[in-house]
C-alpha cells in the first residue's frame, strides 16, 4: 500500500512537472516539512569516551520563504519528537548519565543565494542562526531524573533544492547544520563531577534533513 502510494505520487509529480512550463516568479511561500536528526543531544561532547546509543528524533516544521531572483530569506519553526532516547551504555557511574531525552523547538533565520534552474526549480545555499528551546529529561546514574530547560543560540547554514510541481506548489528538500550548545543546566551524578557542579549542557548541534511541500502565496 505504502509502496503503491509512493509510486503513484512520483508518477503524478513527474507528469505535472513535465507538462508545466513558464511558472511565475515565486516571492513568498509557506511550507510544511518532515525530517530527522541523528545523535540529538550528543553526550560525547560532554564526555568523549562515553559509549552511547544516540538519540534519534523526527522533526516537523513550518517554513516561510521570501525570495527575489537570486536572494532568499528562510525562517519558520521546527519541533523535534523523540524516536528513541539516547543511552549511555557503559561506565555510567563515571559519566553520571544513564539516559537522555532531548526535545526542542528551533526558530531558524537564514539568508543566501538561490540559483533558479529555469522554471523547474532552484538550488539554494544560505547562512544564518537558529534559536533553540529544549525540554525533556535526563536520567542520572543515581537513579533520579532531572528535567531539561535549556535555551541556546547557534550559527549554521542551510542548503536545499526545490522542484516546482505546479505554478503554486513546490517540493523541497533541505539540509540544515547548526552549531549550538546551552549553558550547563544539570548536575550529573558521576565521579566525573566530583564537586557537584551544574556541568551537563545540551548540545543541539548537528545535521537535519527535511523534505516538504511549499505553497507560494505570491
Amino acid at each position: 500500500m505504502f509502496k503503491k502510494a509512493i509510486i503513484y505520487i512520483s508518477i503524478l509529480i513527474f507528469i505535472v512537472g513535465a507538462n508545466t512550463s513558464a511558472f511565475a516568479q515565486r516571492y513568498f511561500g509557506v511550507g510544511i516539512h518532515v525530517g530527522g536528526q541523528h545523535d540529538v543531544g550528543d553526550i560525547t561532547s560532554f564526555y568523549p569516551a562515553a559509549q552511547t546509543e544516540p538519540q534519534n528524533s523526527a522533526i516537523f516544521g513550518v517554513a516561510i520563504r521570501l525570495s527575489i531572483p537570486f536572494f532568499f530569506i528562510r525562517t519558520g519553526g521546527d519541533a523535534s519528537f523523540t524516536i528513541n532516547k539516547g543511552k549511555v551504555l557503559e561506565d555510567q557511574a563515571t559519566v553520571g548519565v544513564d539516559e537522555y531525552n532531548v526535545q526542542y523547538t528551533m526558530l531558524p533565520l537564514y539568508a543566501g543565494l538561490q540559483f533558479p534552474l529555469r522554471d523547474r526549480g532552484a538550488f539554494y545555499v544560505g547562512g544564518g542562526v537558529s534559536y533553540f528551546y529544549g525540554t525533556g529529561s535526563v536520567k542520572l546514574s543515581n537513579g533520579t531524573s532531572q528535567d531539561i530547560d535549556a535555551t541556546a543560540f547557534g550559527a549554521g547554514f542551510l542548503a536545499g533544492m526545490q522542484l516546482h510541481v505546479t505554478s503554486s506548489f513546490s517540493l523541497y528538500m533541505e539540509w540544515i547544520y547548526v552549531d549550538a550548545r546551552s549553558k550547563p543546566v544539570i548536575s550529573t551524578t558521576g565521579t566525573y563531577n566530583a564537586n557537584n557542579y551544574k556541568d551537563l549542557f545540551i548540545d543541539y548541534s548537528g545535521h537535519r534533513i527535511m523534505i516538504g511541500v511549499m505553497y507560494y502565496v505570491l
Binding site: 560532554f46 564526555y47 550548545r181 546551552s182 566525573y192 557542579y197 551544574k198 556541568d199 549542557f201
Partner: peptide, 19 residues
C-alpha cells in the same frame, strides 16, 4: 574538562559564571 571549551563550562550557586 575532557572536552575543552565545551566541558569547561560549569556553574555553582554563589558564583557569577558566564557561558
Amino acid at each position: 574538562s575532557k572536552t575543552g571549551i565545551d566541558g569547561i563550562n560549569k556553574s555553582q550557586t554563589g558564583f557569577s559564571t558566564a557561558t
